[in-house]
Each structure stands twice: as C-alpha cells, then as structure tokens.
C-alpha cells in the first residue's frame, strides 16, 4: 500500500485553515475538510447555529477559504435556498450552495425548513454532520441521539430510550433526487457521494457521521476509529437513496457486535452494564439492517455475496 485513497487527493482543495476552534479530534471538521475537497472554491457554506458556528472562528477570523453565511438555528435549508435564488438571478449557476448543519439543526429545529426545501426540490446540497446530540450547548439529547446513549438530558439513570430518528427515510419520503449517508471514516465513499451529488440538480442530502470526542466521552484520538466501528457494527450503514426509491448499500459492513462500537465510548456505559438493554439494542440494529438490506435487494434485484455475512438471521 502506498497512497491509500482513490478519491482523496493530496493537496487538492485544502480549503480549511488550521487554527479553527474545533475541539481536539472533531469529526465535523474532518467532514468539512473532505467536503471542501470536492466543492473547491466555488461553494458557499450556510451554517446554522451548531458547532461549526464556533469552529469557523471568532470574528474577525474565518477558517474556510470559501464564503460562509451564518444563519439562525432552524434556517439552514431556507437560507441556502435564498442564496441559491439570488445566485441564480445573478447567473452564478456554477457554484454550489451547501447547507452545513448539525443534527439538531436538521433533525429537530431545522426539520421544517429542510422539509420545505426538500419538497420544493431546491437546487441545494444539504449536509448534516451528525454528532448525535446538542454538542455545542453541552451535550443535550437531540432526536438524533441513539438508543441507549447518555447525554446531559438523558443521564445514566435514564439513558435515551428512543431510537435515532431516521432522517434518510424522511428525505426519501420527499422523493429527493439524492440522499446518502456517509462517514468520516470512509473518505472515499464520502467523496464519491459528494461528487455524485454535485452532478445532480435539485435537492441533495448527505448525512455524514461525525463523532464528537467530548460528547461521546472518549479520547480525541478515537474519532475515526469510532466512526469506522459504527459502520462495521451496522449502527450507521453507508447507503444512498436515489429519487426516494432506489436504495444502494455502498459499503457492506463486517457485522461486528455492537459492543465493539459501544465500548470505545463512555456514553454507552449504562447499556454496556445492562445485558438486557444491550440485547435489545442489538436486536434493533439487526432489524433496521435487515430492512435496509431488503430495500437494497428490492432496488437491485439481487444481493452481493458480502451481504449474507452481515445478516444474523437468514432472510
């Protein structure tokens, strides 16, 4: 092995300055760096209230080498729409308008504007960097917080008891031309999806899994590993949905037990201590995964060989 990446090229569009204000090991900054490699300079990021409102720097500083438009918490999709409208009026069809929002700004407070923009098929790219809670405000649960997780509002005594909201299904229900999940641990997959998204006109949604070391109670060096484990344990599958209909799993995970993912993080301590709850979570993951596999099969008419190994109970 030498240069290990197909899609990521060295020194191509490195448009994020160091010195930004992200915590050590921030997954959201890895996601942004990789995304910028695809968009290049011809993009504007619309950032609602989220970690990235801070990361990009305190005035007068700015970390990205593209324009950024900061906006209110619930307005990422619509502010992006407004900018798209203005740029279209100015004939700037060559630039990408990218809503760059956290999970709270997407799954919760921003859902209405997101739904509006998705339904109108606005010509924007909406990327949610998902760290599974309100991290910037100090780790409160969001509707993206997964089953069993600790947050400051779902303490150890009463950890999150509802599964993560399935944003992809919500987007699929809008019949948007493109929706995909991605992970910072799989840069090639992420970049392929970004590239695909840039080739499509209309509303494009990318859900990128971005670990948060302080919020997930883990060491900062584990960000990428934990993201990888999320994929390999089927907790966060990598797939895409075209036109709300065609499901494609883009990476077949190894199907490791969920503990492999949980044990790297302090936030799942209550689940790890409770075998019953852990079994329940594992069952939930299996059901969700099997459902996704069936959708893939229904979309393509067959399953690749790798698929079998990932399914515990035979389909």
């Amino acid at each position: 092995m030498s240069w290990a990446w197909v899609e990521v090229k060295p020194n191509e569009n490195d448009l994020m300055h160091p010195g930004h204000l992200a915590c050590q090991g921030c997954g959201a900054t890895i996601a942004a760096r990789l995304a910028l490699k695809v968009f290049g300079k011809n993009a504007v990021f619309v950032i609602p209230a989220s970690c990235w409102s801070v990361i990009d720097g305190a005035w007068p500083q700015h970390a990205l080498q593209i324009p950024v438009f900061h906006t209110a918490f619930e307005t990422a999709a619509i502010a992006a729409t407004g900018i798209r409208a203005a740029l279209d009026m100015k004939g700037r069809h060559d630039v990408h308008v990218v809503a760059w929002a956290g999970d709270g700004g997407t799954f919760d407070i921003g859902l209405q504007a997101l739904s509006g923009a998705a339904e109108r098929n606005e010509n924007i790219i909406y990327i949610t960097y998902d760290n599974e809670a309100y991290m910037n405000t100090g780790i409160q649960r969001s509707s993206s917080t997964p089953l069993g997780a600790w947050t400051t509002t779902t303490p150890d005594e009463r950890p999150e008891d509802r599964p993560k909201k399935n944003m992809m299904e919500i987007l699929a229900a809008h019949r948007v031309p493109y929706a995909a999940t991605a992970s910072i641990a799989y840069p090639d997959d992420f970049i392929r999806k970004l590239k695909k998204a840039t080739q499509i006109k209309g509303f494009r949604f990318i859900h990128v899994f971005s670990p948060c070391p302080p919020g997930w109670k883990m060491a900062s060096n584990l960000s990428v590993r934990v993201a990888r484990m999320a994929v390999e344990t089927k907790v966060f599958p990598l797939y895409e949905i075209e036109d709300g209909e065609v499901y494609t799993i883009t990476h077949w995970p190894r199907g490791l037990p969920v503990e492999e993912y949980f044990k790297l993080q302090g936030r799942f301590k209550p689940v790890l201590k409770d075998p019953e709850r852990l079994a329940y979570v594992q069952r939930y993951i299996e059901t969700q995964w099997e459902r996704l596999v069936r959708l893939h099969e229904a979309s393509h008419g067959y399953l690749p060989e790798e698929a079998r190994a990932t399914i515990r109970s035979a389909i």
């Binding site: 092995m1 030498s2 290990a4 060295p10 300055h17 160091p18 992200a22 760096r33 840069p187 990428v224």
Partner: peptide, 14 residues
C-alpha cells in the same frame, strides 16, 4: 509508506 491517512483524517489540517 505515505498512505496519507494522517493527512486525510487530520481534523485541523495540521
């Protein structure tokens, strides 16, 4: 062997 992982995954572009 210059696989690039450290560069690709550096959250700070450092």
């Amino acid at each position: 062997n210059a696989c690039g992982n450290c560069y690709v995954f550096c959250p700070d572009y450092t």
